[in-house]
Nucleic acid binder design. Structure first.
Lengths: 145, 145
DNA sequence: ACATTTTAATTTGCATGCAAAGTATTTACA
DNA sequence: TGTAAATACTTTGCATGCAAATTAAAATGT
């Protein structure tokens, strides 16, 4: 029997696993400088894009797990980056809102992507674009069942 | 000031985050059928490729964190998939060895990649190959420094 | 209106990823 | 040779990702 399919080096999943961990690791230092973890940074990016959204919308935008989101938001609220208030129209929902401090962090955060881009020497911008397109296709294929 | 770099939809890291989680999620069911978690599956693939290696070699091959590896191997040993013995030449080292049962699992595991490939409809084999190459470049760039 | 179902969040338990500290051996070096 | 440095693992603490159970509130159906 042929087991090429079980060769680690032929596995897309393992490439993604390594690439995802690698880039998360690369973000760790720059993000630590502004006191954010990676998922917290993703939440901030979502809120800088659109503020005053429900937790469900935040989950939708970020693809972060709901169970994790509760914990992440709690820590971010402790750091006074945002506040969470009940939606008066639908009391099941809770609205997430950036604080002044949370909004201000955007300026410092803008440095983070630049620092990351500096790390790329073998890959050019066109290839990164192509890579993102391919990743979108993969995510799309895996989305529905 | 322009903040395009902080747009979530322009971030490679977020694409990788989603793609990696998506594919890990896709593996969950098929792997549960053979009672393996994803990292455990990676360890098994490494061992099916080369058995009787040290934990350091296993870490090198799989890119799994050392601290996590200890725990993962412990659970796999409990499931009787492998055994761990001290290397008599260098007593710091420990050798990981598949059990008969661990070796036998390879046949069932061979079905897993096939089931995953079935999920891809938008992406063809050539694109998957290209994607893997690009991911290698990214990992390479992020490796040093 | 009332019960059922659906939606929005939180909570809990398990399995990592990762940094940092700790232990046991082995190597290297003065 | 004796001590410092390096190597191979393990342990611990924190932050998720995810599934499953739970709670609260709103929407549906009869």
């Amino acid at each position: 029997m042929a087991f090429e399919q079980l060769q680690l080096k032929n596995q897309l999943c393992h490439r993604l696993y390594m690439a995802s961990n690698s880039i998360a690791r690369a973000y760790r230092e720059p993000l630590a400088a502004i006191n954010l973890t990676y998922p917290q940074y993703v939440v901030m990016m979502a809120l800088w894009q659109q503020d005053q959204i429900t937790i469900a919308q935040l989950i939708q935008t970020t693809s972060i797990d709901g169970g994790a989101m509760t914990q992440i938001l709690k820590k971010m609220e402790d750091k006074a980056l945002l506040t969470i208030v009940k939606d008066q129209d639908d009391k099941r929902k809770r609205l997430v809102k950036l604080t002044h401090q949370g909004q201000g962090l955007k300026v410092d955060a803008a440095e983070v992507p630049k620092q990351i881009m500096c790390k790329f020497s073998q890959v050019d911008a066109a290839q990164l674009g192509q890579l993102m397109q391919l990743l979108d296709l993969v995510v799309g294929d895996l989305k529905e069942n």
